[in-house]
């Protein structure tokens, strides 16, 4: 029991790393996703093709393989990051495709007439996106984006296999050292994960309600 009490603070500290990785990757993949979605619907065919290839390739690859290729590939071309940065990069590449596809679906759901009205007023493509399309698309995609980001939160656990001491990595180390408290440590980890997943779910539901009221 004492071992568990000693273990808890370390575990909680590891969750800070998990949350850091989650929030940073959410931010970067949101940026990547918005840019990719804008390119995907742009008037320039090569931009559309480039994103189409990126999305098709990365979306259909297991995140584990994306990690492996990042970790083994980039050092070969002279890019050496910390494990944390590699994990951030792999998670961003992977999650960015889901953000892009979610946004594209949101963009396609906007009535064509409103976009024509915007064009008929003389707004440029970027202005149509900026003032008419994205404000509406971002609101309607809150629920699907919530699923994407909660999946991201859980996917950060894969970084444990690549040297990042986040929650799962720390948990596995602890379990290996103190074999007497395996069940307790794993149970505690599971409970914290579920608590955060529920919390994020609530937060996004609140955000969705807020977006709806504005409309």
């Amino acid at each position: 029991m004492n071992e568990l009490i000693g273990a808890l603070p370390i575990l909680l500290h590891a969750f800070v790393t998990t949350l850091e990785l989650t929030f940073l990757a959410a931010l970067t993949s949101l940026v990547v996703g918005i840019i990719a979605a804008a390119m995907r619907v742009s008037p320039v065919p090569p931009l559309r093709w480039a994103v189409s290839v990126y999305v098709r390739f990365v979306r259909n690859t297991p995140l584990t393989i994306v990690f492996f290729i990042t970790v083994f590939g980039l050092p070969q071309v002279g890019i050496n990051f910390s494990f944390f940065a590699f994990a951030l990069l792999a998670l961003t590449l992977y999650t960015g495709t889901f953000v892009a596809e979610t946004l594209r679906a949101g963009i396609q759901a906007i009535p064509i007439g409103q976009i024509e009205a915007a064009r008929a007023t003389g707004l440029t493509f970027i202005q149509v996106l900026r003032y008419v399309v994205l404000p509406q698309a971002l609101r309607s995609v809150v629920p699907p984006l919530a699923s994407v980001f909660i999946a991201l939160f859980k996917n950060t656990s894969i970084a444990s296999a690549f040297g990042v001491a986040e929650a799962i990595g720390t948990m596995t180390n602890m379990v290996n050292v103190h074999s007497t408290i395996v069940l307790w440590v794993m149970g505690a980890t599971a409970i914290i994960y579920i608590a955060f997943a529920l919390l994020f779910g609530r937060a996004f539901a609140w955000l969705e309600r807020k977006a709806l009221i504005v409309r």
Partner: peptide
């Protein structure tokens, strides 16, 4: 200018902003 069958007002903007968007941005 153009007026459409389906009105096509921007649903995330209030009426005032709908009317003012073009003059401000174009």
């Amino acid at each position: 200018a153009m007026v459409f069958q389906q009105f096509n007002l921007f649903s995330h903007l209030n009426i005032l902003d709908n009317v003012a968007l073009g003059p401000m941005k174009v």
